[in-house]
Amino acid sequence: MIRTATPADIPVIHALVRDLATYEKAPDEAKATEEQLREALFGERPAAFAHIAQDDASGDVVGFSLWFLNFSTWRGVHGIYLEDLYVRPEARGGGHGKALLTELARICVERGYERLEWSVLDWNEPSINFYQALGARPQDEWTVYRLTDDALTSLGSPPAAS
């Protein structure tokens, strides 16, 4: 079962984010707090959205997706950027990941969005195979760049007075 996340889901979303960071071999990089997630998802001006995957039999939360809107200047419409998709290892193979992606594709179709995009680590062969089986294709001609920490601060800070 896939449902829209509620504020009551914040603790489990936070735990799943931490699990995902561990799976991606970067647990120290997951610094978001429950309060930051609450504000991003349910604050006065939500900037992100989330869906929860629950086991049909037990009702246990087994996965989540967290996404936000992007915009294509070439297409002239919004799309969805999937920031995180994670299903607990013991629940993989049960259709939860596909159901989460299907829900996001449904939202795209319903709202007239023309893209559903995400990134995947090069070494994550099981996910790559899964995504390609759904018809997703890598954008090999593009390289993702990112500014964080000191580099972001340096670029975004006012020049030093002389």
Score class of each variant (00 low, 15 high):
residue 121 L to C: 11
residue 131 Y to D: 12
residue 95 G to Y: 00
residue 122 D to Q: 12
residue 98 K to P: 03
residue 121 L to V: 11
residue 101 L to R: 00
residue 153 T to S: 10
residue 152 L to A: 08
residue 114 E to A: 12
residue 113 Y to M: 09
residue 149 D to A: 11
residue 112 G to C: 08
residue 133 A to Q: 05
residue 91 A to Y: 06
residue 123 W to A: 09
residue 133 A to F: 03
residue 145 Y to H: 12
residue 137 R to E: 11
residue 142 W to I: 09
residue 95 G to V: 06
residue 121 L to Q: 13
residue 113 Y to Q: 07
residue 143 T to H: 04
residue 127 S to P: 00
residue 102 T to H: 10
residue 112 G to Q: 00
residue 120 V to C: 13
residue 135 G to F: 08
residue 99 A to H: 04
residue 90 E to V: 13
residue 143 T to W: 13
residue 103 E to C: 05
residue 149 D to P: 01
residue 106 R to M: 08
residue 151 A to V: 05
residue 92 R to E: 07
residue 119 S to D: 15
residue 129 N to C: 08
residue 91 A to F: 07
residue 93 G to W: 02
residue 148 T to R: 00
residue 151 A to R: 10
residue 128 I to S: 14
residue 138 P to E: 13
residue 109 V to P: 01
residue 112 G to Y: 06
residue 104 L to F: 05
residue 107 I to T: 12
residue 136 A to C: 06
residue 95 G to E: 03
residue 108 C to Y: 05
residue 103 E to S: 09
residue 143 T to V: 12
residue 147 L to I: 05
residue 112 G to I: 09
residue 129 N to Y: 14
residue 125 E to V: 14
residue 152 L to Y: 03
residue 129 N to V: 14
residue 138 P to R: 15
residue 155 L to N: 00
residue 89 P to K: 11
residue 101 L to T: 11
residue 106 R to W: 07
residue 100 L to S: 03
residue 120 V to I: 13
residue 107 I to W: 03
residue 101 L to Q: 02
residue 154 S to W: 00
residue 119 S to R: 15
residue 122 D to W: 01
residue 114 E to G: 14
residue 137 R to M: 13
residue 140 D to E: 12
residue 98 K to N: 06
residue 153 T to Q: 07
residue 138 P to G: 06
residue 143 T to F: 15
residue 92 R to D: 09
residue 115 R to F: 07
residue 98 K to I: 02
residue 146 R to P: 06
residue 97 G to P: 04
residue 142 W to M: 12
residue 96 H to T: 13
residue 118 W to Q: 00
residue 95 G to T: 02
residue 107 I to Y: 02
residue 116 L to P: 06
residue 122 D to H: 15
residue 149 D to M: 02
residue 133 A to P: 00
residue 146 R to E: 01
residue 129 N to L: 11
residue 154 S to K: 04
residue 140 D to V: 07
residue 157 S to V: 06
residue 89 P to N: 11
residue 91 A to K: 09
residue 146 R to M: 15
residue 156 G to D: 02
residue 121 L to E: 15
residue 153 T to C: 10
residue 94 G to Q: 06
residue 143 T to M: 07
residue 156 G to W: 02
residue 97 G to S: 01
residue 143 T to I: 15
residue 99 A to R: 01
residue 130 F to G: 05
residue 157 S to P: 03
residue 144 V to M: 12
residue 114 E to P: 00
residue 110 E to T: 09
residue 141 E to D: 14
residue 151 A to D: 14
residue 142 W to Q: 14
residue 139 Q to V: 06
residue 130 F to Q: 10
residue 123 W to H: 12
residue 107 I to H: 02
residue 114 E to V: 07
residue 146 R to G: 10
residue 112 G to W: 00
residue 135 G to P: 04
residue 155 L to A: 08
residue 143 T to Q: 15
residue 137 R to A: 10
residue 101 L to E: 02
residue 108 C to E: 03
residue 129 N to I: 11
residue 122 D to V: 08
residue 127 S to I: 15
residue 102 T to D: 15
residue 113 Y to S: 09
residue 102 T to N: 08
residue 151 A to Q: 05
residue 133 A to R: 12
